[in-house]
Write a protein that binds this DNA or RNA. Structure first.
Lengths: 214, 214
DNA sequence: GGAAAACGGGGAGAACATCTCCGTTTCGGA
DNA sequence: TCCGAAACGGAGATGTTCTCCCCGTTTTCC
């Protein structure tokens, strides 16, 4: 559906105010989802974007579609972050560290809650994007592991879940507070990831599939 | 209000099925809040407790009161955990470690979301309980810091927020998954807390007030 | 064995979110 | 500058969900 909408949009060069409003709505939706979760009233999103609710419905058929677009955007941007960290950093652990903090800035944690609410995990585009992210982060971790800087008993899932958890807006508050703590806590967590391990971990390394197949 | 209810309850020795149902409702509410957040339908809680919704309303005037009771219970239990760790463990960092994992088992993270939804922070009982917890955890951290096992650049709030974040049910899933990761992640975080510090942290140590006064 | 208390299910009432209608405004080309 | 087409915004109909109460039935305890 996203593809179709884009195609239509290109066929008819669309008015500038229409495309601007579309962007505004997506941005507002991202913020609103981050702050109030995936079931924030669509009217609130429209209001935050400074448009009428009818405009929102004109651009997106329903909440489902809006979530899909917002989530896809974010997924793509985080993957970019992982790949640029891979390409540009020379030190393996520094690359990992950079990715973690950048991903946090994208508010992965908050947006992850979109995944459950009618988000089509089997959409080919989404699957591709997810595999791309998986592979990039796996490479980041492999590099760090091989260079002896990352403890060997942690997996991809350990890192991803921890990032999402630590970057979520705390409890019922807005997102203002977490900004102050997020990077401190991620840094502490990263320090715990460094080799040599300072303790033994319970359970086994968590892979991506572990929480995809839930 | 909680005090009054208890007083009434003692004045009239109450039937055993009534008190049993009350306990059941509290337990069910705790689980439901953990899994679905503070606005889970009260009917769902009643159903989970195996009672009719009328029974729930007979015991608790409204959602507000139920939340209050559940939160107070949990706060008290976590404080107990902190104090028993202080009293029983000889190694300072081990005491801290034990407290962190026990607090996680109490599902602090999930229940923290109750705090915002009409929870009376100024109720004298609550204030006392909170101060008790604060003081106990502060002592745990002081001991560990003095023994040279805890890095000096972290504060009470850093620890408390990280615990709540890492022990929350991830995104929109039930609570089943997190059980597997929680303790691993807490352990990794604790490893990051150990002295000597492996990196420099941004910002300043977070105190309790920092996020109480939001 | 009986009165008092507690229980459960069903349903009225209110609140909220979604999505549409239609008169008005804005854009972009001639 | 002017006009047609497209987009806009607000208000409201519709449907759903949660809250809370009523009342007939069951359970407890003296």
């Amino acid at each position: 559906m996203g593809g179709m909408a884009t195609a239509e949009r290109k066929a008819q060069p669309a008015r500038v105010d229409a495309t601007r409003n579309r962007e505004r709505i997506i941005a507002a939706a991202r913020e609103a989802f981050v702050e109030h979760g995936p079931s924030v009233p669509l009217d609130a999103i429209a209001h935050r974007a400074g448009v009428g609710n009818a405009t929102l419905y004109r651009h997106f058929a329903d909440r489902h579609e809006l979530i899909h677009v917002v989530a896809s955007y974010s997924l793509a941007r985080i993957t970019e972050q992982a790949e640029s960290a891979l390409a540009e950093e020379t030190d393996a652990f520094e690359a990992l560290r950079r990715f973690v903090h950048r991903a946090a800035d994208e508010r992965v944690g908050a947006l992850c809650s979109l995944l459950y609410e009618g988000f089509d995990k089997n959409d080919p585009n989404v699957v591709d994007a997810r595999l791309g992210l998986e592979s990039a982060v796996e490479r980041l971790m492999d590099n760090a592991r091989r260079s002896g800087q990352l403890r060997p008993d942690v997996g991809l899932g350990d890192l991803m879940v921890a990032i999402t958890q630590l970057t979520r807006p705390p409890a019922g508050t807005g997102c203002a507070l977490i900004e102050r703590f997020m990077h401190r806590h991620l840094q502490l967590f990263l320090d715990g990831l460094r080799a040599p391990a300072r303790s033994e971990l319970s359970g086994t390394a968590v892979t991506f599939e572990d929480f995809e197949t839930s």
